Every structure is written in C-alpha cells, then in structure tokens.
Amino acid sequence: MPINGNGTHRPVSRPLAPGIYAPIPSFFLPESEDLDIPSFEAQVIRLANAGVGPLLAGSMGEAIHLSHEERFVLIKAARQALDNAGFDHVPIMAGTGAGSTRETVELCKEAAEAGADYAIAIASGYFAGTLAGNRKALKEFWTEISAKSPIPILIYNYPGASGGIDLDSDLITELAINSPNLAGVKLTCGNVGKLTRICATVSDISFTQRCPRKNPDAPFLVFGGFADFILSSTYANGHGAIIGLANVAPHAAVKLFQISQQTLKDRSLLPEAQRLQGILARGDFTIAKTSISGTKYLLEKLYGYGGRPRRPLPPIEVNEAEALWAHPHVQDLVKLEKESGGQFIGS
C-alpha cells in the first residue's frame, strides 16, 4: 500500500476485481521451520503469470501458525516480488483473523502497513459455543473491524475453521448494506443457495447506488471458496472464487472462470465450460481430502517446492501421497493444467 509523507495510507489503488484468487501456502525450511521466502515468492509470481491473485496468511497459508512479524514479512515479500516482476497492479489480500476483535484490528493495520490492499477476516472458533448463536456479537465483530481497518475487509465464512460458526445470507447481506468498508465475502461453506441470495442484493446495479462503498475501487464481491460452482455462480452474478486448487492448477481455474463468463453471451461455449467445471470440481474434492499437506505435496511434485506444514500438522503419508498422485481426478486436472498453459518441472 503506498504511503504518503505523513505516514498515512492513500486510498486503494489496486481495484478488487472478479476472478480467481488463491490462498498462498506459507513455505518453511525443513529443519528450522523458518519461512522459505524464495519458494513463497516463486509461488506468488507463478500464479500472477497465470492471472491468479494472491491471498496471504489464510487457512492454506497456516495463518494460525504465523506470528505477526511473519505475516508482515510475507506481505512485504509478496508486494516486492510482484512489483519487481511487473505486477504492481495486482492487489494483495491478507488474512487478519485472530482470537479477539482487538487483535484482528491490529493485524489489519499491520497488513496495510506491510503493503496489503485488502484484508479478509474470520471469526475465531475458540468461543464458538457462545458466538455461533449470537447474531448481534457476530455482526458487531465485522462492523467494528471494517470501521477501524485502514483497508477494505472481506468476510471469511468458513465453518470448518471457526468451530462451526456459519453466517447466513441475511446477516451477510445486512453487513454489506450497513458497513461501507466491507468489500466482499468468501463462502467456504460451499452453500450455493447462500451465494445466490447474497448476490441477488449486492450484485444488483441499484446496490452500488444505495450503498456506496467507502472506496469505489472496493465493491462488495461474492466469492466461492471451492472450485465446485464457478460456472453456476456466474449465472447467479457471483464474482469468481478464492480456492486452494488454484495453487496447483492456476491456468485451468482461470480458463474455467473466463469461459464461464463468455457463456453469458455465447451459449455454444456452455458444454466446454461444463466439461472444465467437472474436471476442476472432481480435482478439488479429491485434493481437499488431503488438506494442506496434500496441496504442498502436489506443488513439490509439479513445481519443485512445497515441503511440509508447520508442526503439529503432519506431512502427507507416503502411501497417501502416491494414491493422490495416481488418482484419475488429479491426473485429469494435471492434464488440463498443461493444456491450459501450465508448465511443470521437467516438462
């Protein structure tokens, strides 16, 4: 984020646009578990070349295993790498979820200072027994952090990582209407009906007029959290997806998004979009079963870097890794990625 001479942040200069974004893994050195910055930078640039935007320190990035300082280092490294490679126009999203509202706000400020353009925040699941049924508390959480953050905020709705806390479409829509510094939502709940209901309000042309954003470069966008429904969300006026699968097959994911958009004007492309959607959906489903360690294994296999998660997360077992690589859903995905322009080590 550019900084004026008085130390204050300028308005967002990198608009948040519909498309495909990837939660970038954090890579670690084998023995020390210190950050492996060269591998991280390589991944950020490889995805940018494919047209995929970065989300740093999210679930895939093992944010819960990172210190404040490490998050700051990753954001700065990504910004510098992107700028040096000619991608100074590419925005950076940064995960700022924490245990308390107070710390989340602190992380938003630190992310902005490091160079992030947007933040994405999840409600902590530690006290989910209290929070899950308390709409007022959940609404106040995102209302407060969006009001105090120097950069626009996205809501991260992921019940699997927040103790089962699952925001419904009414609450998300209320937040979008009443909090002008909210720039969107990532639905890793996988609920297509929820996406459709939210888009019915926020994707209507009248929404921008009735509920203008604090920054016009940061509209309220609705992203899926899985590759399963990129095509169907296009017809609900959704805005793409933020998906771990894009780490493994970025060109294929972007191709599906682009062809899905084209089908709105040329229905003859629909069969091809459906074919691509099937390959990505099956691949996403199969790889997701192996979590972060499976994705890192595939990155190592295809691109020469990956490594293991930080302890206590275990690496993928050898037999499980071999089965993952041999799985027809993964092989179909790898084939599609190569056909779509992807380059692998040794290819």
Rank of each mutant, 00 (worst) to 15 (best):
Y305M: 00
D83Y: 07
F87G: 14
F257T: 11
A176R: 09
T208I: 15
I345S: 03
L56S: 09
N4Q: 13
T295M: 07
G97R: 09
L231R: 09
A323F: 12
I259P: 06
Y235G: 01
A63C: 15
S340Y: 00
G115Q: 11
I45N: 00
V90R: 00
E140P: 01
E317I: 15
A48D: 06
H68M: 11
L280P: 02
L333Y: 09
P212K: 11
Y126A: 14
G164S: 04
L154Y: 11
N178E: 14
A48W: 03
V202S: 06
A321Q: 08
T290D: 00
P328G: 01
R213N: 02
I37P: 02
I45Y: 01
V330F: 00
Q258W: 15
S293R: 13
F226I: 09
N215R: 13
T101P: 01
V185T: 12
G19K: 13
K265R: 08
S124Q: 02
R102W: 14
E113H: 13
A249G: 06
V334W: 11
I45C: 04
A85T: 12
L276F: 06
A137K: 06
G244M: 02
M93P: 11
E317W: 10
N49R: 14
L35A: 00
A119P: 08
P159I: 04
P180T: 05
G307H: 01
L171S: 05
